[in-house]
């Protein structure tokens, strides 16, 4: 399974970036091969509008099946849902620990967005 994690740094020990649309970057982790790639999100960091939508489009294009992030607004949630991507809300551990929690089934996917539009 390929998972995108919003992250502040480029390693798995880094904390999850609580923001989705304006996250610094996404770690794209292939849990089968343990391959790690970094998807920059800098173009959305300063976007006036639609940052969540564009970030969602980018992770959809990266071909992930799941997203781990701290907070996800309604528009990004709609995009990810339409693409059939599971969304996990988590911010209290490292990116690597959150992936382990998904694989072990202790972290459950979200049913709805957990932040308002323009949450920062």
């Amino acid at each position: 399974m390929k998972i995108a994690v919003s992250a502040t740094e480029s390693t798995l020990s880094t904390p999850i970036d609580s923001r989705f649309g304006r996250a610094k970057q996404f770690l794209i982790v292939d849990t089968d091969s343990n391959a790690l790639a970094v998807l920059p999100n800098t173009q959305n960091l300063n976007a006036a509008q639609g940052a969540g939508i564009q970030a969602a489009q980018n992770v959809v294009n990266a071909g992930v099946q799941a997203v781990i992030t701290g907070n996800c607004g309604p528009k990004a949630f709609r995009v990810l849902k339409a693409a059939g991507i599971a969304i996990y809300h988590c911010s209290d551990r490292s990116a690597g620990d959150a992936i382990k929690a998904i694989l072990s089934g202790t972290l459950q996917p979200a049913e709805s967005a957990n932040a308002e539009s323009h949450w920062s």
Binding site: A47, Q49, G50, I53, Q54, A56, Q57, V60, V79, A82, A83, G84
Partner: peptide, 9 residues
């Protein structure tokens, strides 16, 4: 220019 459209699926 306003991210009002995207392609999903």
């Amino acid at each position: 220019q306003f991210n009002a459209l995207i392609i999903v699926g």
